[in-house]
Design a protein around this nucleic acid. Structure first.
Length: 413
RNA sequence: GGAGGGGUACCGAAGUGGCUAAACGGGCCUGACUGUAAAUCAGGUGGCUCUGCCUUCGGUGGUUCGAAUCCACCCCCCUCCA
């Protein structure tokens, strides 16, 4: 909490906090040496995290390096957030759709702000040094770029997992993608990073920073990688496009519910990387599960921790109550969206179910509504709707339910 | 520059003139079972004024009663050779 101006923790104490959940550190000795020097001189380390301002909403996956950044910050170090505005403007073709549009500078700035806004839920952004990499990349001329390119080889580049995989699978690699590691490394040179954080998928890029720094006669940065945590399905990396994510902006019930749906094997991992629960406590929980504790209860704990972290303890309790009501008791929640029927559809105070579901926004199309009704997935006031052509007499407060978790309450004017 | 292969729905991938709104697998959705876990089982998965109609197979144009399938041009990707 009150980490301002306080005496710096000892190297061992710092290492203890910093090593939580990391996959790899290149190298531990160098990190200790840097910390030792920092403690001695009172000079904080410069810790870097780079982001691509592509306008994404933060998922818990993104918060893993952010939490590590926060740990450094709390220990009194200077954290530096690099917003890759220049990189983003060039247009990152990574992935299969090369159609990703190039961003205007304005857009990248807006995305950067969007990111910082959400990051504020994890770290103290007022003490963040925010830098845009166009600051040093834009002034480079072609000769500078060629010189930079000369610092590595194609064979070296193809060592990168992502590249070699795509190369062997016959998927395209644009030439300029080779510049990404170089640009990212150049960022480290420019801000004189002592430490850089990233997921294990960033390893190659992080190491490039070391090489470029060494080349400039600087002490190379320490690279700390955190795991890429699996999403809700327990298999694939948590990502927006896979739809297997929890977003930091998720509503409390949503966040809690998603936490409850993860495979048991992921509980401890989520607690370690997504929350700040003390490791000892997590281990105790794991032991308890091994001895027969219902993993569901551990997940409920996870759900509470997460919601408390992003919405506060009161909301955490509320989310849990909501979960109990809706999913354990299969009851109707207190809070749900409300909607007013389109008066044009009313006939003697009645209307067709499909039109009502559409009006409530519970279905995307009439066909979907029809399908769901046939499959028994729609109920009104607890009663399953059997006929897709049914006409319902409207009453204020009627509750429409679609699937297990979509509700809407009808309101008459 | 030369030769060859390829672009199909959310993804992968069949289909080479009508029986194709398009096999199969994954994902996703619904139902059953549950701990909204996993696993499993059943069904579904373009839209609509829904026993029918409309739009869809890289793009444009054409042949045909009829095209994802044939032809022409164009765009994009991959492999090998140079």
């Amino acid at each position: 909490m009150s980490d301002q101006g306080v005496k710096m923790a000892s190297v061992t104490e710092q290492m203890d906090v910093l090593m939580r959940g990391v996959v790899d550190v290149v190298s531990v000795e160098e990190l200790e040496a840097k910390l030792t020097r920092s403690v001695k001189t009172g000079k904080p380390l410069r810790v870097k995290l780079g982001i691509d301002p592509t306008g994404f909403d933060l998922t818990l996956g993104h918060t893993v390096p952010l939490r590590k950044l926060k740990a450094f910050q709390s220990l009194g170090h200077q954290v530096v957030l690099i917003i890759g505005d220049y990189t983003a403007q060039i247009g990152d073709p990574t992935g299969r759709n090369e159609a990703r549009p190039q961003l205007t500078h304005e857009e990248t700035l807006a995305h950067g702000r969007h990111y910082v806004e959400q990051a504020a839920k994890v770290i103290d952004v007022s003490r963040l040094e925010i830098r845009y990499n166009s600051e040093w990349l834009a002034p480079m001329n072609f000769a500078d770029v060629i010189r930079l390119a000369g610092k590595t080889t194609v064979a070296r580049m193809l060592e990168r997992d992502d590249f070699s995989k795509r190369y062997h699978e016959g998927r395209p690699i644009s030439l300029h993608e080779f510049f990404y590691p170089l640009m990212q490394g150049q960022d480290s040179v420019a801000i004189r990073a002592d430490v850089e954080l990233g997921g294990t998928d960033q390893t190659f890029n992080l190491l490039m920073g070391r090489e470029l720094q060494r080349d400039e006669g600087m002490e190379p940065q320490v690279c700390i990688t955190n795991p890429i945590v699996e999403g809700l399905d327990g298999v694939e990396k948590m990502s927006k496009s896979k739809g297997n994510y929890i977003a930091v902006a998720d509503r409390p019930e949503e966040m809690y519910g998603k936490a409850m749906s993860i495979p048991d094997g992921l509980i401890a991992k989520y607690l370690i990387h997504f929350t700040e629960m003390p490791l000892a406590e997590i281990e105790a929980l794991q032991r308890a599960m091994a001895e027969g504790m219902n993993p569901r209860d551990a997940k409920m704990r996870l759900g509470r921790e997460l919601v408390a972290l992003y919405h506060g303890p009161a909301e955490a309790q509320a989310a849990e109550d909501h979960f109990r009501t809706v999913f354990q008791k299969k009851d109707v929640p207190d809070d749900m969206p409300e909607f007013h029927p389109d008066p044009a559809l009313l006939e003697d105070g009645a209307a067709g179910v499909i039109q009502l579901l559409l009006g409530a926004g519970l279905v995307a199309s009439g066909s979907e509504a029809r399908r769901l009704i046939i499959q028994g997935g729609v109920s009104v006031d607890g009663e399953r709707v059997a006929d897709e052509r049914a006409t319902l007499a409207l009453r204020d407060g009627m509750v429409f339910k679609v699937g297990k978790r979509k509700f809407a309450r009808l309101r008459l004017p």
